[in-house]
Design a protein around this nucleic acid. Structure first.
Lengths: 204, 204, 204, 204
DNA sequence: AATGAATGAGCATTCATTCAT
DNA sequence: GATGAATGAATGCTCATTCAT
């Protein structure tokens, strides 16, 4: 996925890099960057610590790439779901996807939330922040439901993303998680409120 | 105990502890626990490092107390706002308070969001998680607006809190922050959706 | 005991000092100087840490005095036993006393053994090293058994003390301690060897 | 493992570890574990502090290995001496070896004496305590001299070891040390006493 | 391409000691 | 006589990073 399919077979590319990616996704997703050391990642990947620096240059750069990879995973799924013919089904499915993702990689939610905080850049000149990519997908779907003023779109999408992310995060942390349907409904109340107060999109 | 009212002037009582609290709020609120060292806190507080341990026992215990203090600050304001006669005004004011708080102590949002993740307990047995205290306040207000099934309440309140927290967090990180009113509206669309689909509370 | 009986009653002398002495004997005897902090001693004595410095000046000075006190305790008992009419009974009793003492205050043996090592002085300008006081008592008894050349006396007494101390120390550390009688016999074999190779003392 | 015989020159292999060992033997032998810091050991070894942790994992583990190494040194010499054809010569030589060792590494005696005290284990699960290895060697020699009941053997050997260790320790600390011969004689009086009261071993 | 030995700055924590009250 | 708040030097340890091979 990361390595766009070349025409040539590319025998093994970088086995070490792949293993490091896998180990990082697992460890970072579960415990976050600060709680994971380069030693541990290398050990679980079954390579030497030096290999991390050979392949990625620094811990931060590696984290950046892993984060991007995780974001790509999530966004790809969201984008696919966003094409469902019925936009409200699309949103519901997208929220459901978010719940699954956060359950699998709990600390990604936390990282994305804090990602904008960094004053300079830690893991990141980070091409596009995750939330931007997600909210623009959300906006596309919303645009198929109601007519919103331009300056309303981003805040509405942000609210939806925040509600979904936080609900999912809490559900993942809970011993006996809330009913998934109830959470989806709660998040989608935002759309209900939108519809109740805005003009619906007329199909051309 | 420390502040037992003496008849004598009591020049500066436990000035050190207060200074440490202030420095911690500032530093922790801005950069989060991992990014702040005991040295730095002590230095900014103008006391020696040993004083931290004399007064708090450990870095974690200190952070726990500071976090609790910050939570108390926010919750107290929210509770006060929740008593406004018009429940929708109350919610709007509460969201506004959250925005201000997050702007002042950006990393608190992040900490609270990740607070449930900790398997055991890092900064103590943390009486009640912040989100619980906040959502129960939100629920009180919502109960004055619509009639909700018991199992719907917590998820709805969670969604509202998540939307507000995330929006506020993003606004705080942004160079040219979104219009506050637009954010408030977006968060409150959840309430709009609620009203559109639930029976309103009848005033006796 | 420490305060040689004055003619005047000496109402309470220093209650704090006594409590510190008691706590120190207990803690130091069990765990040794390095493993015990001033905080802990003060806490168990039920006084403030400052009181230690008020009464003793420093941790080392306090330890020195406690060590001396412990040595006085042991030596007093040994001296008393040494007056038994039958010198071999005296030696056996003295060894038995050593076993009891080491069992009660295990780390005293260790401290006394390392006491001579200190290059300068840690806890001490320590009047007379414990081993000197003990061996001179041993020598007095031995002189009643056999005739020894002057330069033999100290080494023989040292060997006896070492054998007794080490045996006692090991017994104290053992889960199911060796039979006390067997230990006493083993130590006293030194005397047996002496008698077998030296002229017995003729009573005038 | 570290020293697997390579065909290639192997310039300096694990020079750091060796240097750390040498420095530790010197420093620990002279002043004991508590009085020596990791910084100091690393500095004298001419490596960085991190190297200690890279090679040994912790200060305690390093001390454990150094202690074991020292014990191996002593025991190896004792075992060799124990094979002398004349058992009493063997014992005398062993005592002499102990004196030399203690003179060179004064604090080892102290550590070994206190080694059994540790409730849990500080420097590791310490394979076999030194005193056990030494006394079993002593017992082998004694068995060639007299017939002892099984339960007498350990206490007698312990007394001999204690007498030798303590005498050696005192001699090492003394400004003008006692005559070595006199000390050896004193320790060996235990054997004299044994012979005087027990049946000698009959040669086949 | 990969390794692993080595580094050193940074960190949380301990503890004997001081001193104003 | 006694206290307890405050100190600061010292310590064991972690970890991202470098580099010769």
């Amino acid at each position: 996925m990361t390595t766009s399919p070349n025409s040539r077979p590319r025998t093994r590319a970088t086995a070490s890099k792949k293993r490091l990616f896998a180990a990082s996704m697992q460890l970072l997703g579960a415990r976050g960057p600060n709680a994971v050391s380069v030693d541990e990642i290398a050990q679980i990947a079954g390579v030497s610590k030096g290999t991390v620096y050979y392949n990625f240059g620094s811990k931060d750069k590696m984290i950046g790439q892993v984060l991007e990879f995780g974001a790509d995973m999530l966004v790809a799924e969201l984008v696919e779901a966003s094409t469902l013919s019925e936009p409200r089904d699309a949103l519901r499915t997208m929220a459901s996807i978010a719940i699954d993702f956060v359950e699998k990689y709990p600390s990604f939610a936390q990282i994305w939330i804090s990602e904008q905080l960094r004053p300079e850049s830690d893991w990141g000149d980070q091409i596009t922040p995750v939330y931007t990519r997600v909210t623009s997908t959300i906006i596309e779907v919303i645009d198929r439901i109601v007519v919103l003023a331009q300056e309303e779109k981003q805040p509405v999408a942000t609210a939806i993303f925040g509600a979904a992310l936080f609900s999912a995060r809490l559900r993942a942390a809970s011993a006996n998680p809330e009913n998934r349907e109830t959470i989806l409904n709660s998040v989608l109340f935002i759309v209900g409120g939108l519809i109740a107060t805005h003009e619906p999109v007329t199909d051309h």
